[in-house]
Write a protein that binds this DNA or RNA. Structure first.
Lengths: 350, 350
DNA sequence: GTGAAAGCGCTAACAA
DNA sequence: TTGTTAGCGCTTTCAC
């Protein structure tokens, strides 16, 4: 059995060492006002000397912040991604942006997985909240607009950010500019001389699917090109991508370029093109809407939309931290731009 | 400013609802003896009815476990991997094995990054320990045998597991059977008819580098093949892989097969082979010591050693949890076998 | 078997 | 500007 552990250096030791009261030390730790610089320096010195670090548990018990932010991800999808080992790095990018930003502000990020489709999602979330008492929660699709979740968070008075949502409502809404990204991708192709630019849309249950279609539509319209017969739909799976691509290839107006709404569908399109003897990019230009490792190491490497997931998460953390410290926070939804990585799969049409 | 939050349902409410004392509830929560089944049932019912979840912070304050396990990873390398977005999924696999196993036992896994090469590694770790008060820590290379770390953990009486270490000493040592994996890879090539089997070793600061060399040596020796001039060394980076491969190609005894100690060096070898007009696998067989997405999607797909990182981490969590609950734990180091995924990059030599 | 006490390390409210 | 007091929710004594 592990020995009973107690904090070795407590606020009490620091107070004694500095010859001040607990409260003064507490004030210094929490950067509260009403402490003379001189006192502050003395306390700081003692803290450094003794190597004191406040206990999050005790801080939380005293009724203050827990300095913990929970990043909520869909259990099923996340575990499936990890098991597949296909390089999907959504969680990694969240950690990259989230952990580093948390660290800057003295917070810690904890990744939690919950079942979306389960009816005990409330119990699961409640458990995490009660156990961890986080200061903030970051919601990711498909949780971002789940009213069961947002309502509970509001009821508990916990700051939260909704990634991938532009709806107003409780918490901070922030999203990647999917429409702009789709426009950028389409414009890139138009600039190369393409006119028959097909789009393989994602499923309707993801709101971003619609945003991407919208961006494509607008770019086409701006260039005076009709979209007729150039739209197909998939569900983000490889198989659905194949049939969508097949439909586009066989259409009356066969496209010279295709934008697929995610990597799997882009890869499926590439495979089908290869099978049909369509050379990429000479006979078909192709753009993926995910910049996963695979699309970069496939031949030819795919031109792709880079989604700033780390940046969005970092922003989410900043908003939560700001709210915690009573700083003003922007009212409306926040939108971050995506980038386009131009690689070998796009070129001028023959 | 966020409203001051307090636990809504506490042990007190449960006690009142069940008509028992706080202690009885506490005993039920912690599965302690000396509670009549009847009482236990009543308490259980109240807990379910009220949706009570104990506060980790308060539990920890009371002097018991924190139900937190920290997974310590190297900051620099981890962040670099995330930034590169090349599909390195060490952390993901750790989370897969670690989080799920933690969840089974009511624990939570927190990923922490620390600077290995920094001299304030002690302060960093101390900070994490004091703040989080974890019940256990999982060390990964290159921290696993850092005496600064292990000594501090022992001094604080915190259970810890050392992944990638076989040394006896404080904490649990567990490792992937790197030597066996190297032997397996080498045997695979020998079985295909190769004799000139080169090895690109990893840097010495990782003990596993030596184990892999050892496994290769033994397999070669068992087949009566000399290793002379077939060993090169890199530091796990792409660039170092290129020079190591180059050295092997230019050696008096040019190898017909190469085993690279990680994916980056394997990819570098593949690239160089391509540049030099060496066809893989016809003129050069290649094995990677990491099964990251890239090595699977490159052409030809690489035969690779699959490292059971999730399984090792899961085992580490189990050991820590067992020690926490006073269960007996195995004395010696634990070794888990790796697998070999045979793909298109290995074949018979011409 | 069960309950009453004290206290964990910290912060909020108040007083000085 | 500083110190004092009273908890936070829980677990550990130790009585009963």
């Amino acid at each position: 059995m592990a020995p009973r552990r107690r904090q070795s250096v407590t606020i009490r030791h620091v107070a004694a060492d500095a010859g001040v009261s607990l409260q003064t030390v507490s004030r210094v730790i929490n950067k509260e006002p009403n402490v003379r610089p001189e006192m502050m320096e003395r306390v700081r010195a003692s803290i450094a000397k003794l190597g004191y670090v406040p206990s999050i548990a005790a801080q939380r018990m005293g009724g203050s912040r827990s300095y913990l932010i929970v990043a909520l991800n869909d259990r099923e999808r996340t575990i499936a991604d990890w098991r597949n080992r296909q390089g999907t790095d959504w969680v990694d990018q969240m950690m990259l942006g989230g952990m580093l930003t948390c660290a800057e502000h003295g917070y810690r990020l904890i990744v939690e997985l919950v079942d979306t489709h389960s009816d005990h999602i409330e119990r699961e979330l409640l458990g995490a909240i009660a156990a961890l008492q986080p200061d903030g929660v970051i919601l990711t699709p498909p949780h971002s607009e789940n009213p069961l979740i947002t309502r509970m968070l509001e009821a508990h008075g916990i700051s939260f950010a909704r990634i991938g949502s532009l709806k107003l409502g409780g918490g901070f809404a922030l999203a990647i500019d999917d429409e702009g990204a789709a426009r950028m991708a389409t414009d890139h192709l138009i600039g190369l001389g393409h006119r028959g630019i097909g789009l393989i849309a994602g499923p309707d249950e993801y709101e971003l699917s619609g945003w991407r279609v919208e961006g494509w539509r607008k770019a086409m319209a701006a260039a005076g090109i009709s979209c007729d017969g150039l739209l197909a739909q998939g569900d983000f799976s490889f198989a659905s991508g194949r049939s969508a691509a097949s439909a586009l290839f066989d259409a009356a107006r066969a496209p010279t370029a295709i934008i697929a709404s995610n990597d799997q569908m882009a890869l499926a399109t590439l495979e089908l093109a290869r099978e049909r003897g369509l050379r990429v990019p000479d006979e078909l230009s192709l753009i993926s809407f995910d910049d996963t490792p695979i699309v970069r190491f496939v031949h030819p490497a795919l031109t792709a939309v880079i989604q700033p997931i780390a940046a969005v998460t970092a922003r989410a953390v900043e908003l939560i931290v700001a709210e915690q410290s009573g700083q003003p926070t922007p009212p409306g939804p926040i939108m971050l731009p995506a980038e386009l990585a131009i690689r070998a799969s796009t070129g001028a049409p023959r």
